[in-house]
Simulated assay, not measured.
Amino acid sequence: MSDLLAAVERTALLTAALRAAESLRSDRLYHDPYAAMLSGQIGPELLAEVRRVTFPSDGSVRTLPSTPDYNAIRTRFFDDFLTEAASDPTMTQVVVAPTGMDTRAYRLTWPEHVRLFEVDRPAVLAFKEERLGDARPVVDRRLVATDMVTEDWGADLVAAGYRPDLPSVWLLEGLLYYVPEPDVHRVLDRVRALTAPGSLVAADVVNAAALTLPNMAGLLDVFAGWGCPWLFGTDEPEALFDQYGITARAVQPGEPEADYGRWPDPVPPRSVTDVRRVFFVHGRRRAN
């Protein structure tokens, strides 16, 4: 277990801890009964570290985004995206890449026509399987043990039963801002090659200023100290996805479509520069 744990990104354990904490709230946006067992002892420690830098104990004004509220909104937003997409009987394939400690295969309601593929590095999947124990998914779940950044993971996905010629639904959650820009383009180019026209794709990404603003330093330093620095941001997420044949919309936490009564901060218009932003990008693969 210790060797597996060392190979698991701390961000995956942090996300599990955030989902476990959200599940205990009376006003929770979702319920993840598996998150606590996946976060273990380390996840809550990581969450405590994020809370310390985010919420000043001296009563001063918070300058960092509220990670607990952000994660709750992100999880619910993409829960709804996947649930709605899978309700279409032509959407028989769902790809969650990377999956990390995601448990949507266990906690969401899936139609019988869906096959769900979870993509991540072998050590991450092995750790997750050990933690989940006897829990059973409620969908046809296929594990794809591969590295999305360095390996030909598309071939591994196809070998697991994925059909590139059929419509599919993709979720790239918690990935793009952790990899260098050339790898972002490499991942999206591979998604384009693997998706049939009409397929749906969603992801989260930060803007460029979020990587450099002085008032973001506290949070950025924490992630860098864990070996998971933020490396990529874009001010034009729609244009980024358009390059790869995906006509997309970008929604920010706090906007009506992604609020759920939980986002505590103002949402400046897109024309305002030098402010931190997060985008939930979702769109459809074009025929050309």
Rank of each mutant, 00 (worst) to 15 (best):
D134T: 14
A135T: 01
R136G: 02
P137T: 13
P137I: 11
P137D: 12
V139I: 03
R141E: 07
L143V: 05
L143A: 14
M148C: 03
V149Q: 13
V149C: 09
T150F: 08
W153P: 00
A155Y: 05
D156W: 09
A160N: 05
A160T: 09
Y162K: 06
P164W: 11
L166E: 15
P167S: 10
P167E: 09
W170H: 06
L171Q: 12
E173L: 08
E173C: 04
G174N: 09
L175F: 12
Y177C: 02
Y177L: 10
V179F: 01
V179E: 01
P182N: 05
P182I: 07
D183N: 03
V184C: 00
R186L: 10
V187D: 01
R190N: 09
A193V: 03
A196F: 08
P197T: 12
P197E: 13
S199H: 11
V201C: 02
D204W: 04
V205E: 01
V206F: 14
N207H: 04
A210E: 05
A210P: 04
L211A: 09
P214S: 14
N215M: 12
N215Y: 15
N215V: 10
M216Q: 15
G218T: 09
G218R: 14
L219S: 05
L219Q: 14
L220D: 02
V222H: 07
F223W: 15
A224I: 06
A224T: 15
G225M: 10
W226N: 02
G227F: 09
C228P: 00
P229W: 14
W230K: 06
W230L: 15
W230R: 08
G233H: 08
G233W: 09
G233F: 09
D235L: 09
E236T: 14
P237E: 04
P237C: 11
P237K: 10
E238A: 14
D242N: 11
Q243L: 14
Q243W: 03
Y244L: 01
